[in-house]
């Protein structure tokens, strides 16, 4: 499921056209795996999350952008790990007991996201998801799909598109 599309559709109330989901936008819920980065809570669509790992041994990958922490061995698959802090332009973090790697699957590739912690799994009705806005601190809009309101918290929903994650694009350069 492409979260981007769903959110867009929900907002333009065209969701009825999408065949299967006959319910109104109010009833559609999304689930997010959330993590904290400094003081902001971020969420990744749970449907894209493959698994969550403790900090494993990471092999540095030379001649790659800084935010590529390296590669790990996930049951015989070699997968890259993106240091989310560096990718989003935050200062380098420390590896602690809470450090996790969220393995997401996007466009048929598996990518690990190195995050400081994994906070929670939350359900948010689509109605509570707003489009990205300038309000949000820290992260460039390109990385964001939307902003979810959950209880009294705001969760920044991340865009998991492969190019955004892995490519050393202009976006990344302007941030860094």
């Amino acid at each position: 499921m492409d979260l981007n599309k769903v959110i867009k559709n929900a907002k333009t109330s065209e969701i009825q056209d999408i065949g299967a989901s006959e319910q109104s936008a109010e009833n559609v819920e999304i689930q997010l795996v959330s993590f904290m980065l400094d003081d902001v809570e971020y969420g990744v669509d749970i449907l894209q999350v493959h698994e969550i790992l403790r900090y494993p041994e990471i092999t540095r990958l030379p001649n790659t952008p800084k935010f590529i922490k390296g590669v790990i061995n996930l049951r015989g698959n070699v997968i890259p790990v993106v240091d989310v802090r560096i990718r989003f332009g935050f200062p380098k973090g420390k590896i602690t007991d809470l450090t996790r790697i969220i393995v997401v699957e996007t466009s048929g590739k598996q990518v690990g996201l190195l995050v400081d912690n994994v906070y929670q799994v939350v359900r948010i009705p689509l109605a509570n998801v707003d489009p990205p806005s300038e309000l949000i601190t820290g992260v460039s809009e390109d990385f964001i799909t939307g902003i979810g309101r959950f209880q009294d918290r705001l969760i920044v929903i991340l865009n998991m598109s492969l190019s955004i994650l892995l490519e050393d694009s202009e976006v990344a350069k302007t941030i860094n």
Partner: peptide, 18 residues
């Protein structure tokens, strides 16, 4: 093992091995 499978080609590397 290829690096392209989950990432992309990296200059100077032919792949990885476990």
């Amino acid at each position: 093992k290829s690096l392209e499978q989950n990432y992309t080609t990296v200059e100077g590397l032919a792949g990885a091995s476990i």
